[in-house]
Amino acid sequence: MSVPADFYLTLSAVMFTIGAVGLLVRRNVLVMFMCVELMLNAANLAFITFARELNDVGGQIAVFFVLVVAAAEVVVGLGIIVAIFRRRVGATADDVHVLKG
């Protein structure tokens, strides 16, 4: 008998929170991006867990699409980061605050 789903889900929730807090705390744009990936992964884990628990392959399909979209997101996001920070000394998100009110 395998591990009950609750443990997976708890693990997923903890990972998600770590990613979220990391996003809020870190200033390096790249690290923030990695935190987003962590959050996505936590969600993926939850999806897979539900797929097993409910014996439904739909959860895995969702993860598949999340992976694809995450890949696309990383490509575009990193493109933007490169475009913005190519000429800057610092690479922190706080350096870009042109929209300050």
């Binding site: 870190r26 790249l30 990695m34 990193l78 980061i81 490169v82």
Partner: peptide, 15 residues
């Protein structure tokens, strides 16, 4: 890809 961008922008840029 992440590592590639890190290298491109400069490893030494740390916060």
């Amino acid at each position: 890809l992440f590592l590639f961008v890190i290298m491109l922008l400069g490893v030494d840029r740390s916060e």
